[in-house]
């Protein structure tokens, strides 16, 4: 029997394959360590017509421990310009850190991030972006974010 995390991920994968939520697309899932998903914001928003890639990295403790989620930043892709997204793709969202719950799933995270982008009122980088990006650890889970904006 496969381990709990891979069993659970295979169920999630099956569901994503049968019915992906609108605006979310499975791009790469060749193993149970790292998945790439594409998201775009549907409807009227500041990100109309833009699409982004999200990288999910799972550890063996998933789903008890949160997946590491960040936007893919490479020669073709950029992180969305958003007050909670750093230019290296790291996302400051409580559900990816302290407020993670094992009942959340890959698609739930994608939907949350979609709504985070959709509700954005001003396209800007977070305060202290340059400083953070310069010293940020590679794994966003190692960053201690302080969540102080409950408006979004």
């Amino acid at each position: 029997m496969a381990s709990i995390s891979s069993r659970r991920l295979s169920k999630e994968l099956k569901e994503l394959n049968t019915e992906c939520p609108a605006g979310i697309k499975l791009v790469e899932a060749s193993n149970f360590d790292k998945w790439i998903l594409g998201i775009e914001v549907l409807g009227d928003s500041l990100y109309k017509g833009e699409s982004f890639l999200l990288k999910f990295t799972f550890d063996p403790g998933y789903p008890i421990s949160a997946p590491a989620v960040q936007f893919v930043v490479d020669s073709e892709h950029e992180a969305p310009l958003h007050p909670h997204v750093y230019s290296n793709g790291h996302i400051c969202a409580s559900i990816l850190g302290d407020a993670w719950s094992p009942v959340l799933s890959v698609s739930a995270v994608c939907i949350t991030l979609q709504s985070m982008l959709a509700s954005c009122k001003k396209k800007e980088r977070p305060e202290g972006n340059d400083r953070y990006v310069r010293f940020a650890p590679e794994n966003p889970k190692k960053t201690k974010f302080l969540y102080d904006d409950d408006t979004v």
């Binding site: 007050p83 909670h84 400051c92 969202a93 409580s94 559900i95 407020a99 719950s101 009942v103 959340l104 739930a108 949350t112 709504s115 985070m116 977070p126 305060e127 202290g128 400083r131 953070y132 310069r134 010293f135 940020a136 650890p137 190692k142 960053t143 201690k144 974010f145 302080l146 969540y147 102080d148 904006d149 409950d150 408006t151 979004v152």
Partner: peptide, 29 residues
Amino acid sequence: EMDESPHAKDNGTEQDDIVSDSEGEREIC
């Protein structure tokens, strides 16, 4: 030390945690 307390370049020796604003998307539950 980078994980928890990156040194702010402009403040020299003063250490401060990265403070960023975000929301707790608590409606998810």
